[in-house]
Design a protein around this nucleic acid. Structure first.
Length: 210
DNA sequence: TAAATGATTAGCT
DNA sequence: GCTAATCATTTAC
């Protein structure tokens, strides 16, 4: 399966769910930084109040969302960056936000990028994850993932004990219908998922053995 | 040209 | 747990 098929032939929430347990990597030029995706949110286009493409809104800033499935959408806010992958055909404003990863390789470099912070603080938030990768510009915005230093392993993924679908965070509560949609997918028990309760942390990080 | 607005994080209580 | 910081983009005038 190539990127185009993976990001187009299904609904966006289905894609977000399927991304959990897969490996996201970034090639810095001298080393590979990678981690397992443990939290992702779906943004389903013009009907979605929480999406940047709500109401069909389109501007140079969110152009990446309208690219064909597999196009990267790097968004800047509060001097931090978010990492999205556009889904569906070109001109459809849907996408998946990668919110958290479980670090696998290049951890020392990530700690350095995060100014010494380690443990779950390393990547348990969308902006933290980008900082750990050393992303400081929108250079890769609107680029196809296959033509960027980023890579998502589509050929294999870790087995997950349980995937939870929960309400998204930080969205306009004035519209309870969309505010409560379960479009945020997480690996239950993984400590790198944001907002997890200590007692809910699973010793196997939420992954099945082997 | 100016003011409002967050797909948030960090730091303090 | 709660509040402030901080800035690109958007929206209003």
């Amino acid at each position: 399966m190539d990127y185009s098929n993976f990001f187009i032939n299904r609904t966006t929430p289905e894609i977000a769910r399927d991304l959990l347990g897969r490996t996201l990597s970034y090639n810095t030029g001298s080393e590979i930084l990678s981690g397992i995706i443990v939290e992702a949110e779906a943004y389903v286009g013009s009907k979605d109040r929480a999406a940047h493409s709500y109401g069909g809104h389109r501007s140079p800033a969110n152009e990446g969302l309208y690219g064909p499935g597999g196009t990267l959408y790097i968004y800047a806010q509060r001097q931090y960056f978010f990492f999205d992958v556009a889904t569906q055909e070109k001109d459809i404003g849907q996408g998946v936000l990668i919110r958290a990863i479980h670090p696998l390789s290049g951890i020392n470099t990530m700690i350095k990028n995060r100014h010494g912070k380690s443990g779950v603080l390393l990547t348990n938030g969308p902006a933290k994850l980008m900082q750990a990768f050393g992303i400081t510009s929108r250079k890769w915005d609107c680029h196809f993932i296959g033509e960027s230093p980023f890579d998502i392993d589509l050929s294999s993924k870790k087995k997950i004990k349980h995937i939870s679908a929960v309400a998204r965070v930080g969205i306009n509560q004035s519209d309870p219908i969309w505010a409560k949609k379960p479009l945020r997918f997480i690996v239950s028990g993984n400590p790198y998922v944001s907002d997890i309760k200590k007692k809910d942390i699973d010793p196997d990080f939420g992954f099945d053995k082997n």
